[in-house]
Design a protein around this nucleic acid. Structure first.
Lengths: 338, 338
DNA sequence: GTGAAAGCGCTAACAG
DNA sequence: CTGTTAGCGCTTTCAC
C-alpha cells in the first residue's frame, strides 16, 4: 500500500495540493463540490492525514503528556482513565509515562514530553521529588502544566486535589463521635504533602474534641498490608492502650483488620478501623471497611477539563492558577460502626 | 524562552547545522572536540531536540499505540504498566487510547494511531469487536500489530495470552479433587474467546473426571459482585443442589462469597469457591479466595518484548506470527481448601 | 474559489 | 572530518 499524501489526491483531481489541504480542513473558501470530490477520493485512495507533518508545521501536536508514578496502582490508573476519557472527547491523545516513583525517571519523562512537543503536561509527582523537581522548566518554556493529587511545592500552577486535611479530620472525628478515644494513626515516613495533611487533620480533630495527643499512637512507616499487620502486632506486644486505628490508606487498613481478627479483637466493638482511598476491596471484605473516598475518576475528569479550559483561553500562565480542591467523602461501613 | 534549534547552536559555534545534527546523534565521523562543544552549547542554550521534525524526516516516531478497553480495570492497567515499563527502557513512548468497550471508539483509536504514524500498535479488543474489527487495515499497511489477552478472530498476528482453557480446567479439577461434585460455573453471555475457553476447561474437567454436565449449573450473565450475589440467591431459591462455584473472574466470586456467608453456608466446608484473575482483594478477604493468576504485568512485559524483537528484525509480517501462551497458575486459598 | 510558494526542524545522501 | 543540498507532508500567507 503506497503512502498517499494530499499531492496524490491533488493529481487525481487535477487541482493543487493546497486546495486539497483546505478542503480536508473544511476551509470556508472552498466550494462544496470540491470538498465533496476531495473527500471522496481521499477515502477511495485510503488517505490518512499525517499528524506528524501537520504538527511540525502548525506547532500543535494535540497530544497531552501524562506523567504518573505507576499505573499498577488503582488510584493512578483510575485518574488516567478519567483524563483520557475527557481528553479523547476533545480531540487530544495521551502520551503516557511512568516515573516509577523515581526522580530520575520522572525527569526523563519530562524530557521526553518536551522533545515530543506535547501541547501540555498533566502530572502527579513521585515520592522522591523535592521542590519543583524538574517541572520548573516546563513552566519556564510556557508549556501548560497541571498537577493532580501529588503537587510539588513551590510551583504555582493549576491543580486538582482532594482536601486531605478534611479527609483526615472527618475520619478521626467520626471515630471520636463513635466513642473511640485512643485512636492510633498510621502514616508514613516521607515528607509528602498529602500525607502530612491527613496527619494534620487527625491531630486537629483530636485537639478540637479535647483528646490528648499521644506520640505512641502515631506510627510512621511504609504502607502495605504487611506494615499494617506489623503495627498491630507491635501495639499489642508493647501493651499500648488503643481502641481505634485510622490508616493513611486502605491496604494498610486491610492488614490492620486481618491482624486484629487474628488477635481475637472484635471489629468494631473493641477496635474501630478507618482507611483511606476507597479501594474496591473495602466494600467487599468482612467487616466492610470504612474509608475516605478520593473521587478518582472525577479527579481525572476535573483536571482534564480545567486544563482544556485554560488551553482554549490561550494565555495559560497569565492568570492566577486555578486550584480545585475536591471534597472527600467519608464512607462509614462496618469496621467503625458501633 | 526562544525556541532553540540546531541552527542556533551552529551559529553560536560557527559550524553548519548538519555538523551539529551529527554531533548530537553521536555520529562516528565527528571529532570528539566538536561533539563536546556542541553538547555544551546545546545544554547552555537549553536545546531540546524536536522529535516531531525528526519523525517526519526519518519516518519513525518511536511511539507505540496502546489500545485497551478501559484503564479502570486492574487487569488492563497492570498490563499497560508492564508494556510501558519495557517500552520505556527501549526508548519507546506509549500513546494511549481507551475503546471503552465500544467498537466505534476502537476504530477511532486505530484511526488516531494511523494518523499519528505510530511505529506499532498493541491492543486488546473491545467486547463489541467482531471478526478482525478495524485491525485488518493496520496489517494491510504493514504496521506492526500485536494483541494481548483479547485477540480478534481471523487475523494472524503475534499475541500473548494466557491459556484460559487450562485455567478453567485447573480450577475445576482442583475443586473436583477437593471432593466437590456439583460445581456451578458462572460465565458471561457474550461470545468472547477467552471466556469461552474457561468454560471449555470447566466442561472438559468434568468430563475427564466422569462428572455429569448439568446445564442448570452453568450460568451466563455479566460479571460483577452483584451478579455473583444474585446467582447464589437464585440457586438457593430454586433449590438447586450445588457444593462449589467457579466464577469467570474475581469480582463475581466476591459477590458469591458474600451471599453464601449471608445465607449461612460455610466456605469451604459446605461450598467451595474459586475465582479468576488474582485481584488484589482475593488474598485480603476472609476467607481468602482461591483464584487463577493471569500474570498481568508479565503479560505486558512479554508482549512488549515480543514486539521489540520483531520490530528490530524488520520484516514484521514476513514470518509466521509468534503466539505466546502463558501458563496460568492456580492459587489455592481458604475458599476451596477442605 | 483556487494556485504558488515558503518553511516548520530535522535526516541523510553526496561532495569535498 | 565537515559542508551542501534536498526533501519529509503539511499549514498558511499572499496572490489573482
Amino acid at each position: 500500500m503506497k503512502k498517499i499524501t494530499i499531492l496524490d489526491i491533488a493529481k487525481e483531481l487535477n487541482i493543487t495540493f493546497s486546495t486539497v489541504a483546505r478542503a480536508l480542513n473544511d476551509h470556508p473558501a472552498i466550494s462544496t463540490t470540491t470538498k465533496q470530490a476531495v473527500r471522496e477520493t481521499a477515502d477511495r485512495l485510503g488517505y490518512r492525514a499525517n499528524k506528524v507533518a501537520s504538527s511540525l508545521r502548525s506547532g500543535k501536536t494535540k497530544i497531552i503528556g501524562v506523567l504518573v508514578p505507576r499505573l499498577d496502582v488503582t488510584f493512578f490508573s483510575s485518574v488516567v482513565h478519567g483524563i483520557e476519557g475527557v481528553m479523547n472527547e476533545n480531540g487530544y491523545t495521551i502520551l503516557l509515562y511512568q516515573s516509577q516513583e523515581s526522580i530520575k525517571q520522572e525527569n526523563r519523562g519530562i524530557d521526553t514530553f518536551l522533545r515530543s512537543r506535547v501541547d501540555g503536561i498533566i502530572a502527579s509527582i513521585s515520592l522522591e521529588t523535592e521542590g519543583d523537581g524538574g517541572y520548573g522548566e516546563i513552566k519556564d518554556r510556557n508549556i501548560p502544566l497541571a498537577f493532580f493529587d501529588r503537587v510539588p511545592q513551590g510551583l504555582d500552577v493549576p491543580s486538582v486535589t482532594i482536601d486531605d486535611y478534611r479527609g483526615g479530620f472527618m475520619a478521626t472525628e467520626h471515630l471520636i463521635q463513635s466513642g473511640y478515644r485512643r485512636i492510633v494513626h498510621i502514616n508514613q515516613y516521607r515528607n509528602i504533602n498529602i500525607f502530612n495533611e491527613r496527619l494534620r487533620g487527625y491531630l486537629d480533630a483530636l485537639k478540637q474534641y479535647g483528646l490528648p495527643i499521644d506520640e505512641r499512637l502515631i506510627i510512621k512507616g511504609d504502607f502495605s498490608p504487611e506494615f499494617g499487620r506489623q503495627c498491630v502486632r507491635n501495639l499489642l506486644a508493647n501493651g499500648i492502650d488503643f481502641d481505634a486505628i485510622f490508616t493513611l490508606e486502605d491496604f494498610t487498613a486491610m492488614g490492620v483488620v486481618q491482624e486484629l481478627k487474628a488477635a481475637g479483637k472484635d471489629i468494631p466493638t473493641e477496635v474501630g478501623v478507618v482507611g483511606f482511598a476507597n479501594e474496591a476491596f473495602t466494600s467487599l471484605v468482612s467487616p466492610t471497611v470504612s474509608t475516605v473516598d478520593q473521587c478518582t475518576v472525577q479527579m481525572g475528569e476535573e483536571i482534564a477539563r480545567l486544563f482544556l479550559r485554560l488551553l482554549e483561553r490561550g494565555d495559560y500562565y497569565k492568570h492566577k492558577p486555578e486550584k480545585i480542591v475536591l471534597a472527600p467523602s467519608l464512607l462509614i461501613r462496618e469496621s467503625s460502626s458501633r
